[in-house]
Every structure is written in C-alpha cells, then in structure tokens.
Amino acid sequence: MKILLVDGTIIGRKTGAVLEQVKVYLEQFNPELELSILKMSDYEHQFVDGRPTAEYNDSMREMVRRFEEADGYIIASPIFQGSIPGVLKNAFDMLHPRAMRYKPVSIVANGGTYQHHLVIENQLKPILDYFRCLVTPNYVYTHTSHFDDTNAIINEDVHDRLRELARVFVQYAAMSTHLSKESLDNH
C-alpha cells in the first residue's frame, strides 16, 4: 500500500517533525507500507480557480497525481489564525471528489494554543468527510510546548498518542483493502 504523508504547510518545521515521527511508528507497525512524504513546500502552487487540471503547471499536476495514486494518507497541518493553511485547502480544492474515497486518513496537527485542536474537528474533518475518507477516530494535536528548541518531540504522552494513531491507521489501511474500488467509476 502506498501511504502519502502530507506536510500541509510551506513554512515552519514542527509539522514536518510530527510527520517524521508518525512515519517511524508506521514503519514499526507495518514495515510493508510504502511511505512517502509530500511537502507542500516542494511544489510551485497556483490558485485553484476551476479550470481543467491540464491547464495547471506540472508541479500542481504532479501533486494531484501523488494524491490520486496513494492508498491512504497521514495529513499533517499547522493551525494558523484558527485555520488550516491556505496551501493545504488549495491542494484539497484541486482534487477530484473521488480521489480519496474510502481511503484511510489520520490527522496530526500543531499549534500555539491548546484551543486550536478544534480546527481539526470543525474544518479538517468535514473536508475529509466530503471526500468520504476513512478518517481514524483518533488524531494527535501538538502544542509548541511539546517540542524542544530543535523541534524534537519531548512529551511522552504525545509519543504514546502518535504510536496509537499509527497502530489504528494500520488497522484502517488493512480494512480499506476489502472495500470495492470498482464502484468508484460508476458513481
């Protein structure tokens, strides 16, 4: 299974640090998963404005291809100004509504206040529900205080929650292989 670990920002390092840690735990639970990281900062973004996909630059089309070819996702997002980054929302806007259908997704996020975990519930989950993803019931929200000055995670509870997220994701990934993908073309 191809699992895409999405670093949903073009700035900062904590989101990527959380994603790298999840990658380690996923490898421990299922070393057969094919894990790759997609960093939004590696792409030349264009605003999605409704034109056909073929009219966007190669970078945007490559990003869409990677989303479409993946069998599951770990979505990592910082929370800025009480919301997900525009670049992440723009990427979602670029995808076909069936691109992520019935594929497992887990969410990790980080922010500067503890209240910003609600952004996951109020913004990110509804987007993933629209795509009809198999969103795991557990997500991990980290706070600035959970990191040291090198952006290493220093909070053991966060490590425990990330391990549990990886364990549940692996189970959802196995479950998703039994769902028929054939019906996607018919609906």
Rank of each mutant, 00 (worst) to 15 (best):
L5A: 09
K23M: 11
L26D: 04
L88M: 08
G12M: 03
D49C: 13
K14F: 04
N30V: 10
E44Q: 15
G72E: 06
F47S: 15
E44I: 11
Q21A: 12
Y56E: 00
G12T: 03
A54R: 13
E55M: 12
K23R: 13
A17D: 04
Q46F: 06
S77F: 02
V18D: 04
P52Y: 10
P31R: 06
S36H: 07
F47Y: 15
G50S: 09
V87R: 02
L19S: 00
S41A: 14
T15F: 00
A70S: 12
F80R: 12
D58K: 06
R66S: 05
F80S: 05
G8I: 07
Q28L: 12
P78N: 08
H45G: 10
S77G: 04
M63T: 01
D49W: 13
F80W: 14
G8V: 04
M40E: 03
D49Y: 12
L33F: 14
S36A: 14
K23T: 12
E20S: 09
G82T: 00
G82N: 04
E62C: 03
V87H: 03
E62T: 11
T9P: 03
S77K: 07
K39S: 06
F29Q: 15
S41R: 13
F47R: 13
V22I: 11
L88N: 07
I37G: 04
E62G: 04
I79T: 14
D49K: 13
L5G: 07
R66Q: 14
L38M: 09
E69Q: 13
L35P: 09
I11E: 15
F47N: 14
G50C: 10
R66P: 01
F29S: 14
E34P: 00
Y25L: 09
P31I: 02
A70V: 08
I10T: 15
P52W: 04
L35F: 12
E44W: 04
P31F: 04
I10W: 02
F67N: 02
V6M: 05
G82Y: 08
M60K: 05
F47A: 15
A76M: 07
L38H: 00
I75R: 03
Y25K: 11
Q21P: 00
G50D: 12
P78I: 08
L4R: 02
P85W: 01
